[in-house]
């Protein structure tokens, strides 16, 4: 086993354990923390894949901003006491888990068998490719994908306005 494989197993295991903890912890704060751990392990996987810039952005956006917002809301609403109420029944839960396992088997089947016949599998430079630089990503973003890039700014603007409208209506109804 070389270093890359060991690191892949390490990060993969951590991210999976984190993901399972997200759905099994009772308290939302602990779920949020497990999710942060998962995001970190994923940033590690991105580093293994040579996507340094994406790894950094992953930590900045997900761990640094999105999860802080989650924690902020959990703390603001003091949600810990409410989560136990009205949990799903045992039978339904089992059914959901079985469905999930079926989905996982499907995914694994696609990853191992179906993709072998596509263009992705035939192009196999794999580890030989150098790390993607920030320059490359920037160039793609501002040339080939300029239109989608601008559309994302519209999405953000729409989200911004949406949030303001939501909050504004509330404070008006309170008065």
């Amino acid at each position: 086993m070389n270093a890359e494989q060991i690191l892949f197993i390490l990060f993969g295991a951590v991210s999976l354990i984190g993901a399972i903890s997200v759905i099994s912890f009772r308290h939302p704060i602990y779920s949020a923390l497990s999710l942060i751990v998962t995001f970190f392990a994923q940033a590690g996987l991105f580093l293994l894949l040579g996507a340094h810039f994406v790894a950094a952005v992953q930590v900045i956006v997900y761990a640094g901003a999105i999860m802080v917002l989650f924690l902020f809301v959990i703390m603001l609403l003091n949600l810990g006491t409410l989560s136990a109420k009205g949990a799903m029944g045992g039978k339904l839960k089992g059914f959901a888990v079985i469905l999930g396992i079926l989905l996982a088997i499907e995914g694994i089947y696609i990853a191992t068998n179906v993709l072998n016949n596509t263009a992705i599998a035939s192009a196999q430079p794999a580890t030989a490719t150098p790390n993607t630089t920030t320059y490359e990503i920037g160039e793609l973003l501002f040339s080939k994908y300029l239109l989608p890039f601008e559309v994302t700014s519209l999405i953000l603007l729409a989200a911004l306005i949406g949030v303001i409208v939501l909050v504004k209506r509330e404070s008006e109804s309170e008065n």
């Binding site: 991210s15 999976l16 399972i20 694994i108 993709l115």
Partner: peptide, 17 residues
């Protein structure tokens, strides 16, 4: 590649569950 895709599938499934 396929190990990464398997991991991705497992994570996705965890989310669905």
């Amino acid at each position: 590649l396929k190990y990464y895709l398997i991991l991705s599938a497992l994570l996705f499934t965890t989310g669905v569950i």
